[in-house]
Computed example of a mutant assay.
Amino acid sequence: MRFMGKILEIMKKLQFSTFFLVVSLFSLSCENKTDTILSGMHRDASTLLYNVNFKKKPFFKNDTFIKKYNVYLEKSIIDSVYGYNFKISDSIQTIYNFNNTLYIINHSNRSYKKRREINNQLNQLIFPNCNLKKDDLFGNNTIIDTLEDRVFVLKKYEDENEFKNIKEKYSFSLVNNELINITSEIDFQNTSQFISNEYEKLNLNVSIDIETELKQLLGNYTNQKYLEKKESKSHLKLFSDIRGVVLENNKQKELVEYNSKVIILDYWFMACYPCIKTTPMLNRINEKYSSNEVQVIGVNLIDRNVEKLKNFVNYNKIKYPIFLTNESPLLVKEYPTLIILDEKYNIISTLYGYDENKEKEIFNLIEKIIQE
């Protein structure tokens, strides 16, 4: 599959959704029909406006998350990441991409953040117009079905380690030759995840002045980087306000009761695959040093099913304490987030995401703090 490959790419870019029943198999005639559909998907249009109805049931969750996005795209020869300047809005925020920079606008507190990185969820929202190719729809384990006004393509993929039953479905309209929906599904550690994107109300005759809109917003909104500096407290006071429950013994505890020369807070949750990949590294750090030297603490703000959490911790052999709390004065929004503190709870370093090369960096930092 062109836009996926290794399982990490599957987790980042593939959308996992509900399974559907296929009743028949077509070959060349259906492939020609899909060629016609792809030719009508307006990838060459200079501007596009449409809605995306997004649904997701994460791993280890029973509830389905639902959100609606309004997406505007305009082709850009300057943009080397997405190929488009764009504006994506939901009920809470607006995200602009202009000249290779993402601007995340928060209307509730009139602030914004700037980013220069690929956001894979945004990739999925612009997926049908930028990325879909014929090779994505055909190949091994592809089943095609037709109704009077639609074509369905089901693709199945081989299991990848712990990832099982990987499926993806596309549906196309034969009325207007447009992509209607992408739904996909995957199983992992006895739980499943699905994601569904439904595309609607495609309009080719709309032009939005992104540059002017953005300039006006940035002139009236506050850069969140400076907002956070203005509102920051002393580090010890910041962490002394955090109270929670230790998963292992269900006892109430204050975070600052953990005393070591180095304290590593791992902000994580069960449905976060990069968080799971980070666990072995944190186990090795926790095992190498005594509790007086280094204490790793898994801080969970999201999961509240204690039985599922304990099963998850046992299955993934997590050896450090798990601290459940509702209090997040640091406003952690990216997972995993590793916050490295000294014994006075001063923040020494903050690291985001999973990177297999990060372990050496953390060990070097620990040694430096311990020797001081």
Score class of each variant (00 low, 15 high):
Lys6Cys: 07
Ser328Thr: 13
Tyr221Gly: 07
Phe194Val: 01
Thr142Gln: 06
Ile166Val: 14
Cys30Val: 09
Ser24Arg: 12
Asp241Leu: 07
Asn131Asp: 13
Ile302Leu: 11
Ile37Phe: 11
Tyr354Thr: 08
Tyr352Trp: 01
Leu202Arg: 06
Lys237Ser: 15
Glu254Gly: 09
Tyr226Ser: 08
Asp342Trp: 07
Lys133Ser: 13
Tyr50Gly: 03
Val153Pro: 04
Ser89Lys: 13
Asn357Met: 10
Leu154Arg: 11
Ala45Gly: 05
Arg43His: 12
Gly219Asp: 15
Ser291Leu: 13
Glu287Pro: 02
Asn109Thr: 08
Phe363Lys: 11
Lys277Met: 15
Lys133Trp: 00
Pro329Arg: 06
Pro128Gly: 06
Leu238Lys: 10
Lys229Asp: 14
Glu356Gln: 12
Thr18Asn: 14
Ile322Thr: 14
Asn300Glu: 10
Asn120Met: 04
Glu158Cys: 00
Asn311Thr: 11
Tyr320Gly: 05
Ile126Pro: 02
Lys114Glu: 15
Glu367Leu: 08
Ile95Lys: 04
Phe188Leu: 10
Asn249Tyr: 05
Leu341Gly: 06
Asp145Asn: 13
Thr142Asn: 10
Glu158Val: 04
Val206Arg: 06
Asn51Tyr: 03
Glu257Arg: 08
Ile340Ser: 07
Tyr289Thr: 08
Leu255Thr: 05
Tyr82Ala: 09
Asn283Val: 07
Phe269Val: 05
Ile88Trp: 02
Glu254Met: 11
Ile347Gln: 09
Leu49Glu: 11
Ser260Ile: 05
Ser108Phe: 13
Tyr315Asp: 14
Thr212Asn: 13
Glu372Thr: 14
Glu168Ser: 09
Lys360His: 10
Leu49Gly: 00
Gly139Tyr: 08
Val256Asn: 05
Ala271Lys: 04
Asn346Thr: 11
Glu117Cys: 00
Glu158Thr: 10
Tyr50Glu: 04
Thr279Asn: 13
Ile182Trp: 02
Phe59Arg: 04
Ile88Gly: 01
Met1Phe: 11
Gln121Cys: 00
Leu73Glu: 04
Leu214Thr: 06
Tyr273Cys: 03
Glu185Asn: 14
Tyr352His: 12
Thr325Ala: 10
His235Ala: 14
Ile318Asn: 09
Phe65Val: 14
Lys344Trp: 06
Leu73Met: 15
Glu356Met: 07
Phe26Ile: 02
Ile369Arg: 06
Lys113Tyr: 02
Glu213Trp: 03
Thr183Arg: 02
Val71Asn: 01
Glu160Thr: 01
Asn316Trp: 09
Lys13Thr: 12
Thr94His: 03
Tyr289Phe: 15
Gln193Ile: 00
Pro336Leu: 09
Asn62Arg: 09
Asn51Arg: 11
Met41Tyr: 06
Leu21Ser: 13
Arg243Glu: 15
Ile362Met: 07
Phe363Asn: 13
Ser196Ala: 07
Tyr69Arg: 07
Glu211Gly: 01
Asn120Lys: 00
Pro336Ser: 10
Leu218Phe: 02
Asn205Asp: 15
